[in-house]
Design a binder for these strands. Structure first.
Lengths: 343, 343
DNA sequence: CTGTTAGCGCGTTCAC
DNA sequence: GTGAACGCGCTAACAG
């Protein structure tokens, strides 16, 4: 059952009665080829059903015309938009895209990165790296590398960070404008930079409004739905009043909605809720979720252009800092007269 | 900025004072190498920070030790479980996995498949192919191929279909057992085999219960959330009474919940709802969604084992047909005394 | 325009 | 055990 369908350039050339170089030149279009030979070659290719061996080509050219994208959880809607954007932009530069999983695991991530490098991809795009700066810097010396959604100190990696602090501030300000003063926060995992940034934005917005930070109003949702449930319950159990909740990402916000529902509390009638990331599903929750949106489509396109620039030896243009925005839907409303969250 | 970090086997050999063959043998472990040379080689590799060129190795060996996985929408939670399962099982066989997108588009899908083949992956796993049998058959002659979630007539492709008919029957039977008789159906896209199968299961279950099929109780949700909203509205607008809805997939079920909510109808108090696929999120909807679950983890493991078998020239074991199951959560309940869906 | 000659980096005979 | 030589399939530099 092993397949041996290996038609090579040489066979195509022989059938067409020309040399391999001529076929090669015809294929790449780098040099003109006489009309009659073109026809012969074309015919020969068709008859043999020839497909160039990209591995051999890669070896010979030293370039593979593919860039590797390292994501954390490949099947997560979080990066949906980003992955599409990258793939599309890369295709317009004639680069192919292959995806690999990091699984939020340093070891695994480095292994996959090394694999991409060993595979001689021409460039690498990291979608939110878990690796430390030292490792990034080391590997960035082996391959053009851009980091999307992070900030590396290494001068070798072109990083395009998101402004999570500003985004979080936006969310909290919205709540503040609605008259909320007691705003709880469901934070993301410890140690993750973006999680810390979003916490900081929360605190800054509070402070700017003259509200003291109260850590009893903060619980960890770990960025996942189950964590959102737990965090919401924790918050409620602590018995402190609050009229609004800011969840550090949409997934934990979904969990929060469910937890609230189980307690007979309604969003937004009893509690206002804001998420972060604006996942596609957030338009369809009950009620549709107000969320902070990052312009991932734009950013990923820029990331793609940046790797291509790096690959071609140019320096990627410094991009304007992405402007996050708040998508207001139906999970927030002005603070009710009688506060409902005393539990 | 172009990188030239190319340490080759030859340089490692020279530094170690041995021949390239010896280094190669040491690396592959195919032949014994004397102790002192081992050390020298090891040291040399470390000092030079050598990484084998997988492209060259692939050319020389004729195998790349990687299998390509073609999914439709890489960033969809639908295949989350399947992708993880495949990746894991493949890794245990020392194969790497690379993912590419088909985007539910025949042309794009074929292009990516050809790319994988050109890249000389050792095998290919198709996660629900959109391609027709003829194309599948043609390409399966170029590379070992297994199709997960579909049924190909080609003898060259090892296909592992899902039993959507049985799954749909399960869902409807559950509703029937709860006393529902007027059961609406939000179907999937026209022409997709799995969508037709699920429709058939719906009809069969109805028929077995002696209930006439009424096409006015069926609307197309296109497998997407927005479609679920529309379909639910259509159903409601038609004015026919029904007490339960079976949505052909979870995404459209999510949309249905929202549409119901907008009309002031509650799940499951007014309308019972069953989904299909059991996406991770279905545990966290309001209310948590009863859904049909396919054992994707098991299936994907088997798919991985099957490609490996094909690659190694063995014939993959015939696997027992996967048993779908119903995960009962909180979106269904016994039919209420007063039917609420007269709108 | 086109054929010939060299590699790309590595694995694998084949002799020793 | 180990080195030399050859080849994987293709591109590129060199002469026509």
């Amino acid at each position: 059952m092993s397949i041996d369908n290996t038609v090579t350039l040489k066979e195509v050339a022989r059938l067409a009665g020309v040399s391999t170089s001529t076929v090669s030149r015809y294929l790449s279009g780098t040099h003109p080829v006489s009309g009659d030979k073109q026809q012969a070659i074309e015919l020969s290719i068709k008859r043999l059903n020839y497909r160039p061996n990209l591995v051999a080509r890669g070896l010979a050219k030293g370039r593979t015309m593919t860039v590797g994208v390292l994501t954390q959880e490949i099947a997560s809607t979080y990066f949906n938009e980003a992955m599409r954007g990258v793939e599309l932009a890369l295709a317009s530069h004639d680069y192919e895209t292959i995806f690999v999983n990091g699984h939020w695991n340093k070891t695994e991530e480095e292994r996959r990165l090394l694999s991409l490098i060993g595979r001689r991809v021409d460039g690498v795009i990291l979608l939110v790296a878990d690796l430390d700066d030292e490792a990034l810097d080391r590997h960035a010396q082996s391959v053009p590398m851009v980091l999307l959604g992070g900030q590396s100190a290494s001068i070798h990696v072109h990083s395009m960070g998101f402004d999570h602090v500003a985004g979080a501030r936006l969310a909290v300000q919205h709540l503040l404008e609605q008259g909320h003063r007691r705003i709880a926060f469901i934070r993301g995992p410890d140690g993750r930079q973006d999680a810390e940034d979003r916490l900081r934005g929360y605190r800054e917005a509070l402070q700017a409004a003259g509200i003291d930070y109260d850590e009893r109003l903060v619980a960890n949702g770990g960025y996942v739905e189950g964590g959102g449930v737990t965090a919401m319950n924790t918050l409620l159990d602590r018995g402190l009043p609050f009229t609004a909740v800011f969840a550090a990402n949409d997934d934990s916000a979904y969990g929060a909605i469910l937890a609230l529902h189980r307690r007979g509390l309604k969003v937004p009638d009893d509690i206002s809720l804001v998420g972060y990331d604006d996942l596609p599903h957030s338009s369809f929750t009950v009620p549709p979720l107000t969320s902070v949106r990052q312009p991932l489509a734009d950013l990923s396109r820029e990331a793609a252009n940046a790797v291509v620039a790096l690959i071609e030896g140019r320096k990627p243009p410094r991009t304007a800092p992405p402007r996050v925005e708040l998508v207001v839907r139906e999970s927030t409303r002005a603070v009710p007269a009688r506060s409902a969250a005393r539990r």
